[in-house]
Amino acid sequence: MDALTIGTIIKILIILAIVSAIAGFGTYIERKVLAFMQRRLGPMHVGPFGLLQIAADGIKLFTKEDIIPQNANKFIFSLAPVITAATAFIAMAALPLFPTFTIPKSLPVIGGAIVPSTVADINIGILFILGTMAAGLYGPLLAGMAQSNKWGIIGSARTAVQFLSYEVVTGLSVLAPIMLVGSLSMIDFNDAQAGGITSWLIWQQPIAFVLFLIAGFAETNRTPFDLLEHEAEIVSGYLTEYSGLRWGMFFIGEYANMITISIIAAVVFCGGYNDLAFISGWFLFVLKVVFFFFLMLWARAAWPHVRPDQMMWLCWKVLMPLAVINILITGIVVML
């Protein structure tokens, strides 16, 4: 096998092992951050600072009884969580996580392998990521419909509505930066912003950035828009009948999607993994991704839910016209 193949396999392992671990760790971070913002302590007792809480939760999820309701469609019911978790990681195939690097030759076996920045540098990277993330919403949809529970049905109806609406906004908001860069590849996005902080696309496309963030919150069903599992209205939405490992897979998928959206925001709008002055690129990149991840938790602590009709109003009467106008202006500027 040549150096690149080994490197790609290493990269795949990195994504599967580390990112899924981080996705699990995200639950801990979320609980801690939310706790601090409400002046609580959060998980404290399992391990130092409650760090082993995720392990405890994992053990609990693994050993919990796996219940499938009597009237549920058993095949679809067990398929749905797999869709969410799998698509979340498939989307990461086209995500650049750090600059391409070569493993030093001194290491045995894997020495000299070139680890690429993305697993698959397909030239339509961003569309691929958005497409697979969209396919991931089949998870909640099928889960809600298969469980023969009215809360589940309402949850999946909301999934359909939310997805069909906000997919438009995500696509349109990313379209303006695509027009400026002239490519759909995540690597090209990164390279286009190599010229320091002033070349970041966020300065040229502030509206697109805000629109993308809002739509990203909706697509990962984070708090201002988490209609799918509004506890106060529909118990747990599509998750009502799930327990144990299947429930955990939905959770991992959701957090992996949050990481994906954070990475897209960092690469497309905030300079990617380019070096900035003396700070090395990958460190800065991690900082950016962590900031966007933190922003999602922060918004959850600060803002209340919206009503479904408010959300549709926001999407079709505010965000979509704004996105179209933004594209129009960008198009005129690019043409001139």
Binding site: L127, L130, A134, A135, L137, Y138, L141, A160, E167, G171
Partner: peptide, 9 residues
């Protein structure tokens, strides 16, 4: 992918 995922939904 994008078009038909949306359409079938």
């Amino acid at each position: 992918l994008i078009v038909y995922v949306g359409a079938v939904m």
